[in-house]
Design a binder for these strands. Structure first.
Lengths: 185, 185
DNA sequence: GTCTATAGAGTGATAGAC
DNA sequence: GTCTATCACTCTATAGAC
């Protein structure tokens, strides 16, 4: 029977989608089982800590993705403006042009925030810091860069909320375009 | 035994705080009972529709508050700029300078959005429309007014997410100040 | 007796843990 | 698959105001 496909690493992307779609409380083990094709036994074999450990693994996975695809390019692309443009492109892609919600944002608003406070906080702090770094290299002074980066990271989260509330994904795309224009003006 | 205090209207503010703190799924009847001091009997007496009706009452209560204290002043204050300044003042007050989260935003991100889609949508649509109205009376063209108002309503939601995620309420206050400066520039 | 507010035991279903 | 806890919810039984 056993020994089919799964490794822990194969399961995490599936879990990510499930948590992103249903939220932490909404992601029941039944739903997770259906979405991953794994029985409860396998799930608890990979994640002895249960749902809590699954969510932690998902947050770590998201963090890694943003570190590699957004924060590092923001910091390391020699032309800061290209790094910023890259951030907007990847952000649009990641959230499927506003059709997907930000799992970290969902966790931040829920009372599961306390449980995952460190991961939730560092996601936003790192993003804002990386963007501020790029803005500073683009010539902004430190205070302006920090304020602007917080505005932009916040506006992205807010646009996801509005796009979902209004059932209008285009609002997310339009907001991203205006934010980018503001930063690269 | 009976005949003590409560009316439905007394319960709604308590429910608001509970749903805002725990979200819809996280607000169990046990928690609601503890938070309101009412037994299930009383709760189901006031809200025969159960949790669903409680949440609907809370959303209606929030909507009324914003209609009276934010949207109507935005539309009706003769000096549009004073109406906008009033909006920022009331918004700051309502969210306790960033210490409180927006219940409608929480509902928008969760999968309970579908159940309360109409209320959730109209909260944001009405806010953006009222603000766009004021901006138009302040001399902006229709397209600019609409885009700006969506940016601002979204940025407010995003600032609440970030303030909570970073445990930094000041971020909300600072963001509001920058938004107001941008609108009244 | 009737109506309203209350309390809480008890229902089946389902949750997450193991 | 089995466990126990907890979920939303129902129902019966109350007490006082009319």
């Amino acid at each position: 029977m056993a020994r089919v496909i799964a490794e822990r690493a194969d399961v995490v992307p599936l879990l990510t989608e499930i948590f992103r779609t249903y939220g932490y409380e909404g992601a029941s083990l039944a739903r997770i089982g259906a979405g991953t094709g794994l029985g409860k036994g396998s799930l608890y074999h990979f994640f002895p800590g249960g749902k809590d450990e699954m969510a932690a693994a998902v947050l770590a996975h998201i963090d890694l993705w943003f570190q590699q695809n957004v924060y590092a390019p923001l910091r390391e692309t020699p032309d800061a403006r290209r790094g910023i443009a890259h951030m907007f492109r990847e952000t649009k892609r990641y959230f499927l042009s506003g059709q997907k919600v930000c799992l970290v944002g969902v966790f931040a608003l829920g009372n599961e925030r306390d449980r995952f406070a460190v991961a939730v906080k560092s996601y936003f702090v790192d993003w804002a810091a990386a963007l501020a770094d790029a803005l500073r290299r683009d010539g902004k002074d430190a205070a302006t860069a920090m304020a602007l980066s917080e505005d932009v990271v916040g506006a992205i989260q807010g646009a996801l909320v509005l796009a979902r509330a209004m059932d209008k994904p285009k609002l997310f795309v339009n907001t991203l375009a205006r934010l980018e224009a503001r930063l690269l003006a």
